[in-house]
């Protein structure tokens, strides 16, 4: 038997022609999207794209390296404030300010990664939680950062192009998102990603086979913080205004929920999780305007709970989704996808 094979096939991004076809369809859809949908949905798409970047980055940390972070809103905040301040106060162009502030967030990620070498599980989550809370407090107290009033972004210029509407921003954001996903995929399917997974699966074995655990743990933190920083910088321009209260603890938990719901340790899953949770987050806010259900929920909430119950219904729904995912499909949406694939492969048996 000829065992000779093309090893590049193993690590190829597109394993078959079908995948390339569907990828082309997706790209086509993304190109046509701004022409097909009205403004609000472009804003939604932008918001989703940003969350996809965060979830992809966080997944490298949580999914692949097996560390946890409840403080990613802190890195998000650093990216957002860094970009805006560099642009407003130092008049640095966007395309330089964004990587700079993301690198700064990455540096902070590295620093937060240092205690992670000694902490695990709940202890690590508390440490990162504290970081997330601290950043917003510090930013809120300093006048240089605009204090509690927040900051307005300056005009977004790329070369001579003035990026003004959501639609323009969509054209900038989607390519960045695709590049970020591509980079994440590349990282996890080569040497570095293997080292991450090795640390997650069996740390001692990874150490004795030559993986520098210290280096790769901090590296995972730095990479995911960098991703979150990029997303934060972009997020500032979706809202055009940032204030410390935006980067609340809820945000960190949302990020983590995206990774968990999507499927731990799968880039595809993180993307799916980010899409689902972002959509739910945005759409459930409008639940009161649904004809009958809205009224019913409002009365329910007024009679039995408080009035805040309905307006925060997205968090209740998230909670349920996470619990169900944990109970029935620990691999998240990616696990469901694998099961469907398996089912169709063996269909009709």
């Amino acid at each position: 038997m000829n065992m000779k094979r093309d090893y590049y096939e193993d690590i190829n991004l597109f394993h078959s022609k079908t995948v390339i076809f569907w990828f082309a369809v997706l790209i086509l859809f993304l190109v046509l999207y701004p022409f097909l949908f009205k403004n609000y949905y472009i804003y939604v798409a932008n918001y989703i794209a940003i969350n996809i970047i965060v979830a992809t980055g966080l997944n490298i940390l949580v999914g692949y390296t097996g560390l946890i972070s409840l403080g990613h809103a802190g890195f998000f905040c650093l990216g957002a404030y860094g970009t805006v301040i560099l642009m407003v106060k130092a008049h640095i162009p966007f395309l330089i300010a964004l990587p700079l502030s993301s690198l700064f967030a990455g540096l902070f990620g590295f620093l937060i990664g240092l205690p992670a070498l000694r902490l695990e599980g709940p202890y690590l989550s508390i440490a990162t939680l504290a970081f997330g809370l601290t950043i917003t407090q510090v930013v809120g107290k300093l006048d240089f950062f605009g204090g509690r009033e927040g900051l307005h972004t300056s005009k977004l210029l790329i070369g001579n192009l003035h990026i003004d509407s959501d639609r323009d921003f969509y054209c900038l954001l989607i390519p960045i998102t695709i590049i970020m996903i591509f980079i994440a995929r590349n990282i996890v399917r080569t040497r570095v990603g293997r080292a991450f997974i090795a640390i997650r699966d069996a740390e001692i074995a990874a150490e004795t086979i030559g993986v520098n655990v210290m280096l790769y743990k901090t590296l995972a933190f730095a990479i995911s913080a960098f991703y979150t920083g990029v997303a934060g910088g972009l997020y500032a321009f979706v809202l055009r205004f940032i204030e410390p209260q935006l980067f609340s603890q809820m945000m960190s938990i949302m990020f983590l929920a995206m990774v968990v719901v999507g499927g731990i340790g799968s880039t595809f899953g993180s993307i799916a999780g980010a899409i689902l949770l972002t959509l739910l987050d945005l759409e459930l806010r409008n639940i009161l305007s649904i004809p009958y259900l809205g009224k019913f929920l409002e009365s329910l909430s007024k009679n039995f709970f408080s009035i805040t119950g309905v307006s925060n219904i997205q968090f209740i729904v998230f909670g349920f989704i996470i619990i169900f995912i944990m109970l029935f499909e620990p691999l998240g949406m990616f696990g469901i996808w694998i099961r469907i694939k398996k089912y169709w492969k063996t269909w009709p048996f």
Binding site: D10, R194, I197, A198, R200, D201, A202, I204, A205, G265
Partner: peptide, 10 residues
């Protein structure tokens, strides 16, 4: 002490 979620090659 293997890495259970990787295949043999990896």
């Amino acid at each position: 002490e293997l890495f259970p979620y990787m295949n043999t090659m990896e």
